[in-house]
Design a protein around this nucleic acid. Structure first.
Length: 594
RNA sequence: GUCCUCGUAGCUCAGCAGGAUAGAGCAUCAGUUUCCUAAACUGAGGGCCACUGGUUCGAAUCCAGUCGGGGACACCA
């Protein structure tokens, strides 16, 4: 349960009651009312702006309005204290036992705690990675892959019906380049000396086995053939090989898509012609001449009539070309068809996860989605900024030109999947990340992955120790064994012993998990989870250390079984919430540190 | 030249669709280990939220402009 959403509906219920009684006008707009934790914990457990937001509509000053609501709130069984503060905030506290009961909810749900229904099963399509099938993935792709995967996981948890999708750009000139590069490797495999790979072709070694495979399969069949004959064959073969390579890289990262859509197949199925015919029927396609780009005019620029999409009618800066000078469709035209395809498959909500260099593409694509769907679909583009690699503070040089760049595989093999995934999510997507190989495996407070994992491991360690220390012992005539420590058993513990302010603060934090999931999902911001988990870890480590100063605060109190069970319920809940968050990230929680 | 994006403590970053006295970590300084993993914790100092206007009960947050970092700018993908 999102306890904040629950109390928001309680407040609205009170307002409706006041309206029914004639104390307040009917039909007030509640949409701006929020219930949230106050910035200052001293103000209370929860806070609402309801009185301030409604003051104009209700024709009452905020404090007077607040007074009306406060009476009703005071009567609520879970509410222990209510006050009006500042300009008209309504603040209240909840009884300890209300918070303690949250632990039962967590223990009953386990890892599923925080699952929400706000998505209401609505279909949403997340397209991510979509790396060109021309080579293995590099670190930059890793960020988009992890971000998209975590976002999809988050939306899933929030109750959306998510489709994870990969768009294969297998139709442009680049895949012809790939075919030619592969042809060279093919000749090489047949014993020719090919020397330096000419500029404009892909130089990477990863094409050698592809060329060799073709040589093994077809022998010298293509050696004397003209390009027009071997190119389609080599292209198809190489694309398949590259996609296999990419899927392998993705699975190294633990990223899996539900749907792979091929650009080429859209062309072949006539989907592009169809989509553009739709736009044309709506009068959104015309032939015109664009202004030259301001600032730096390309060398070969010349005024030329082009087939254009009226993107400016939907908020873009200029109208965009749909056809190249040779009459074929542009990438953009195909992408319109592709987005229409996604919408037709049932997702009016689309998300594209894009690289930093695609920022200039967002407006036109959003314009196109609105146009092609008649305003029924929407597109959110999440731009992932660059990842800068460091090795102990020194930048790692990457040169795509020479074909020697740091691949995704290199990184995953160096530090491990879980670390790569978590680190990629510790910054907002539109912020650049510094990824230091030395730092991310460091075991210190400075390393967020380690810190959160340590909290989980520590919780597990406490549970293990409890089982071991107490097994078979009788204390105060009460037996206590490891079967007492299952979540189901802990759920039945008497939780009223959890009254220390630090314990209650931790419980409040854990109880905020469902709200965090919903907020992060709505904002499409998985990074919030990383920061939240850091807070949970800090709060838990803090509580753990309090047991050092004050032995009465330790989790395991040998001579007090009820208290121990209550605290273990808290510890187990911490482990569940951390594991729940890590699951969204696709990171495995560790059971012990070594 | 246009568009996008970022600008918050010395450094790296949060700030939850406008709210109360702007928060963490690192670094600095001062403390805490016979005890559930000290690989941790507690406390202190450190800020004109780039700047200037505007919107309103109220702005780090929204709008306009200025300055600075990054990115993109017909017929590439």
């Amino acid at each position: 349960m999102n306890v904040f959403a629950f109390f928001r509906s309680e407040i609205i219920r009170l307002l409706d009651g006041l309206a029914a009684a004639g104390t307040l006008p009917a039909g007030l707009d509640h949409s701006r009312i929020v219930v949230e934790p106050p910035r200052e914990a001293a103000h209370g457990d929860m806070s609402s702006n309801a009185a301030m937001v409604l003051t104009k509509q209700a024709g009452l000053p905020p404090r007077a309005l607040a007074e009306l609501v406060v009476d009703g709130l005071r009567a609520h069984p879970a509410v222990s204290e209510v006050s009006i503060a500042g300009p008209g905030f309504i603040n209240w506290r909840l009884a300890d036992n209300f918070w303690q009961e949250r632990l039962r909810e967590i223990l009953a749900a386990g890892i599923a705690y925080g699952d929400s229904k706000v998505g209401a099963g609505a279909a949403i399509n997340v397209e991510y990675v979509s790396a060109n099938p021309t080579g293995p993935m590099h670190v930059g792709h890793a960020r988009g892959a992890v971000f998209g995967d975590a976002l999809a996981g988050l939306l899933d948890k929030a109750g959306f019906s998510v489709c994870r999708e990969y768009y294969i750009n297998d139709a442009g000139a680049q895949v012809d380049v790939l075919a030619r590069s592969t042809y060279l490797r093919y000749r090489e495999a047949l014993g020719e000396t090919i020397g330096e790979i000419p500029a404009g072709l892909y130089p990477g070694d990863y094409l050698k086995p592809v060329g060799a495979a073709l040589a093994a399969r077809d022998g010298n069949k293509w050696l004397e053939a003209p390009e027009s004959q071997w190119l389609p064959e080599f292209r198809g073969f190489a694309i398949a090989a590259m996609m296999a390579l990419i899927r392998e890289d993705l699975s190294l990262l633990g990223v899996h898509h539900d749907v792979f859509t091929s650009e080429r197949s859209l062309h072949e199925a006539g989907a592009v012609d169809q989509a553009l015919a739709t736009l044309e029927a709506d009068g959104l396609v015309y032939t015109g001449v664009l202004e030259p780009p301001k600032g730096k005019t390309p060398e070969d620029w010349e005024p030329r009539p082009q087939t254009l999409f009226a993107a400016t009618r939907f908020g873009d800066d200029v109208d965009r070309p749909l056809k190249k000078s040779d009459g074929s469709w542009t990438y953009f035209a195909a992408d319109i068809a592709y987005h229409l395809d996604k919408i037709r498959r049932g997702s009016p909500q689309l998300i594209d996860v894009l690289g930093a260099d695609h920022g200039g593409y967002v407006k036109r694509m959003q314009a196109a989605v609105v146009a092609i769907s008649g305003g029924k679909a929407s597109l959110d583009c999440k731009i992932c900024q660059l990842v800068h690699l460091y090795q102990g503070g020194e930048p790692v040089k990457m040169s795509k030109r020479s074909g020697s760049f740091v691949t995704l595989r290199d990184v995953v093999e160096e530090v491990g999947r879980d670390i790569v995934r978590f680190m990629m999510l510790t910054r907002r997507n539109d912020q650049t990340i510094d990824f230091d190989f030395a730092k991310v495996i460091e075991q210190s407070r400075d390393n967020p992955v380690w810190y959160v994992q340590y909290a989980h491991a520590r919780a597990q360690s406490v549970l293990r120790n409890a089982a071991q220390a107490q097994d078979g012992q009788a204390q105060n005539g009460e037996s206590f064994d490891s079967s007492d420590l299952t979540p189901a058993r802990l759920e039945k513990a008497e939780l009223s012993a959890l009254v220390d302010p630090a314990e209650l603060a931790l419980i409040r934090l854990l109880a905020g998990w469902p709200r965090l999931v919903e907020g992060a999902a709505e904002a499409h911001e998985p990074h919030r989870i990383a920061f939240y988990l850091g807070e949970v870890a800090a709060s838990f480590h803090g509580l753990w250390n309090k047991g050092k100063d004050d032995a009465g605060l330790r989790f395991i109190i040998a001579e007090d079984k009820p208290k121990t069970l209550a605290r273990l319920a808290l510890v187990q809940s911490v482990a569940f919430v951390i594991a729940s968050g890590l699951k969204v990230f696709g990171v495995t929680p560790v059971m012990e540190m070594r």
